[in-house]
Design a protein around this nucleic acid. Structure first.
Lengths: 127, 127
DNA sequence: GCATGACTTCGTTGATTGGCGAAGTATCAA
DNA sequence: TTGATACTTCGCCAATCAACGAAGTCATGC
């Protein structure tokens, strides 16, 4: 139990991972959307997601060529559900999180094909 | 708010600091007692305590030559009280924490003078 | 099959962090 | 006042960690 709790607190001790949790509180998202939202390298985001998943704070499912991450719905230890509720109630009115939500809405308007190729092309064009 | 929350999650991302929180859930303690309980150097314990206090997870008061640390009783942000409740309900039945509580009872039977000189002499004799 | 694209894994690097001892501060006792 | 004690601060070291790019895996579409 202490092991599980430490996995949760360590997972939540990084700001980008907390932001991911709040993004997923709004809706399930595929990795390329999260990459766009955080503005980090794909490998970095993937690492963050694996740490959150290890702590059972998020779950994932494969749909075609995309992998969707989402908050666990049930069958998850109480430690985890309480931690998620704590996050949500604590950060609901936070300025940065509200800004993140606005950006999320913009990102969700783009199609996935447009979005995912965008970050690749974007990097190339920027170089 | 995100700042406060990150301070809390970072503070709780270390196992020794979580153990301190659970010790203080039992009773207020002075630093030398916590040093004895964790088996760490005084400077290390002091650092842990300052990190927890920075996050408002604990408070302190001076009594004579000893400084007592304790869980905050009131006037503390909801983020903090919820985090403490989460810790306590999650770890109440944890094996390691239960062992810690047994050790705490032993330590509490010693007088402070005996205890605090003990760790200094202990270190010297061990060398 | 064979690209292409989405994501993960691996290896490296710079920054953060937990640990310690030594030195500093403050309180108590003689 | 002087020494001892409780705790903190400082400086250092080893270990951990976030970030990245490159290479690997896996599914889709031509």
């Amino acid at each position: 139990m202490l092991r599980n709790l430490m996995a949760v607190t360590k997972a939540l001790s990084d700001e980008n991972r907390v932001r991911i949790m709040m993004f997923l509180s709004e809706d399930e998202l595929c990795v390329c959307q999260i990459i766009e939202l955080l503005g980090l390298a794909p490998s970095t985001v993937s690492k963050h997601l694996s740490i959150l998943k290890q702590a059972e704070l998020i779950d994932s499912k494969k749909k075609g060529r995309w992998i969707y991450y989402y908050l666990p719905d049930e069958g998850v230890p109480e430690i985890v559900t309480q931690a998620i509720e704590w996050l949500q109630t604590s950060l609901n009115k936070d300025k940065q999180i509200q800004g993140d939500r606005k950006q999320l809405k913009k990102v969700q308007k783009k199609s996935l094909e447009e979005l995912c190729q965008a970050y690749v092309n974007g990097n190339r064009e920027a170089a």
